[in-house]
Design a protein around this nucleic acid. Structure first.
Lengths: 233, 233
DNA sequence: ATGAATCAAGAGCACTGCTCTCGTTTTGGA
DNA sequence: TCCAAAACGAGAGCAGTGCTCTTGATTCAT
């Protein structure tokens, strides 16, 4: 409604987040500087505070944007596969996560790295953060429907039955406890592998990171879905 | 030889690292402040530079110390088990890592979290960093000797044969490619689980983190060593 | 048209890592 | 034992940070 001013405001906020994001990429999330952004935009540093009331608020905007990108990438990758091909879908989704992480390591660190001390993720982030995991739950559902099962069954502790029940409701699924826990193990293993690669833990250990990730993703997938091994590349 | 001065220097360096470590715990690694350390010690900020020529050098000292703690914890846990009980040793070692991480989350973040931008880990760190992984290789060795095998076999890519050969030499082991890759998968999965817990990714997902970790560690161990499931707790 | 809301700018506060200088203290060799 | 050299602590200073407050201009809704 209110014309000019609102539009200019939206444009400026977008420009700020864009520059902030570029800065996170080159300087790292910890070195995000409002003053540098202001300098690049040719405005006073204090003016930025009209748009983001603190550095953390700007960080939150970046986090939400990144979660959405990761989620969208996973959804798109999943959508390219036939619904019944669980293992293909897993490989597509996990590669999408890995691909997004390697293309945006700084943003990945923002989501899965060391949390900024004193920064508590506001509730706005949990929606976007769920998009990726919902894709995984969709895989578990399909595997369950086909009778696929984990190669090694977890021993789901009774102490976490309530959690599992609550999660089932939140994600609208009906898979059993063991399958759910196996899925969560695949989830943590997937991001453990990505984190090791992105954060440089394998730097003088493995030379071809892409191949290594491919091997692990294939292995994890077969562990959860008890599918046959992919042919050697 | 040189008496007083050298001793006082050693004491001061120790005091600096101790305060620095406390500060990393309370303020986070990114907010480590040389000035605050100097203030707490009652000396000028510039005097600190007589002991550590930069902030990064101080960080390196903390990293080395932490790697050594983690490695020592793993070695100690491993030593409490009978050599032949691979699964017990795996559980002991993985729990040692998890226990150290929960007791020292800030230091864990220093080692496995987002790398500080512009900071390249100097070669001094690779020795201490290897201590933990060498324990894991010991497990692989013993499993190999007993004929234990991964439940789901990885498809080790030919592209990484050279890496595996080099790693075998470095770690003085003879386990085959598939077993080695399976071990690395367990390695990344272990720290993936710990990272998710420490970094808060499971905060509104799982209530009892300890139990959850126990379930995952048991599952990962049986995946690598094809051991029977532990009894329900 | 006018009062209210919004905005950019600048100065300023308290903080950071780091450098350089200056006067003091300790050290090791002649 | 004496003395130059090395090591040291303190302080000032530079360039940078997030953030606040005030001031004056611009746009908005009535």
């Amino acid at each position: 409604m209110t014309g000019l001013r609102a539009r200019v405001r939206a444009e400026l906020t977008a420009e700020i987040t864009a520059i902030a994001r570029r800065q996170v990429v080159t300087e790292g999330a910890g070195n995000l500087s409002l003053r540098a952004i202001a300098r690049e935009m040719g405005m006073a540093s204090s003016a930025i505070y009209r748009y983001f009331s603190s550095r953390d608020e700007l960080l939150t905007a970046l986090i939400v944007e990144s979660y959405n990108e990761l989620g969208a990438a996973a959804e798109a990758a999943d959508a390219t596969c036939a619904r019944s091909e669980v293992m293909q879908r897993w490989l597509a989704v996990s590669r999408a996560a890995y691909g997004w992480a390697t293309a945006n390591p700084a943003e990945y660190a923002l989501l899965f790295g060391t949390p900024v001390p004193g920064y508590a993720a506001p509730p706005d982030t949990i929606g976007p953060a769920s998009r990726f995991t919902l894709v995984l739950v969709g895989l578990l559902d399909e595997a369950d429907r086909q009778g696929l099962d984990a190669a090694v069954k977890p021993v789901a502790d009774p102490a976490m039955h309530d959690d599992l029940e609550r999660l089932r409701e939140m994600t609208a699924t009906t898979v059993g406890n063991d399958a759910f826990v196996a899925g969560m193990q695949a989830w943590t293993a997937l991001f453990g592998a990505i984190s090791f690669i992105i954060f440089g833990q394998l730097n003088n250990v493995i030379t071809d990171h892409d191949e290594f990730f491919g091997v692990l993703a294939d292995l994890i997938g077969r562990q959860v879905f008890a599918a046959p091994a992919r042919p050697r590349s």
